[in-house]
């Protein structure tokens, strides 16, 4: 692999991290993101049934969420395997996106309520839109964001990599302003 040293989207050598109450914010630099576009009705990517509008699905190491009609974002920790899975789909178009987005995972140590308290300060969406297994693109502090909910206690917010610091500020400032009762 290259002898160039990568830099995190927030300008740090390693992934950025912060903690506010029960919430931990961590930059995910290791995830591979691939845009998948399909013209024809295809129902699955390898073992992963491709989710419908507003949904997020995972199978083994491969996850995907719907980003638009005929379009998905595929996530994987195994870049080669994910690329191979897409390449195996007839008519699939793939675009490398790993460096297009900053990925911030927000985990709660106190179940779903702190995440709900956080998201209602951030995005104008009903709670069910961000229930576990859901994903959507939306506006957050004037940023164009992708928000997924891989699990009950995990929320993932992505925005254009160049706006990483603005997103980080929005998430941290909001987490800091949460009433103590909601944040723990």
């Amino acid at each position: 692999m290259t002898d160039l040293t990568p830099m995190g989207a927030l300008g740090t050598a390693g992934p950025a991290a912060a903690r506010h109450g029960a919430l931990t914010l961590t930059e995910d630099c290791a995830i591979t993101l691939l845009s998948l576009a399909l013209r024809d009705e295809t129902s699955a990517l390898a073992d992963l049934p491709l989710p419908g509008p507003g949904a997020y699905a995972r199978s083994g190491d491969l996850a995907a969420f719907w980003t638009g009609p005929g379009q998905w974002m595929v996530e994987s920790r195994d870049a080669a395997a994910a690329r191979a899975a897409i390449a195996a789909l007839p008519g699939a178009r793939m675009t490398e996106q790993s460096d297009g987005w900053v990925v911030i995972r927000i985990c709660s140590e106190a179940g779903a309520p702190p995440l709900r308290a956080l998201t209602e300060k951030l995005v104008n969406l009903p709670a069910e839109t961000l229930a576990p297994g859901r994903a959507t693109r939306c506006q957050l502090h004037h940023l164009n964001c992708l928000v997924t909910r891989p699990a009950e206690t995990e929320l993932c917010v992505m925005t254009l990599r160049s706006a990483a610091l603005s997103l980080w500020h929005a998430l941290e400032a909001t987490a800091r302003r949460l009433p103590a009762a909601a944040a723990t």
Partner: peptide, 15 residues
């Protein structure tokens, strides 16, 4: 009155 118009879901699915 009734008008058919175009809206773009820019902060959304780009439809």
């Amino acid at each position: 009155g009734v008008h058919r118009e175009l809206w773009y879901h820019e902060y959304g699915d780009r439809s």
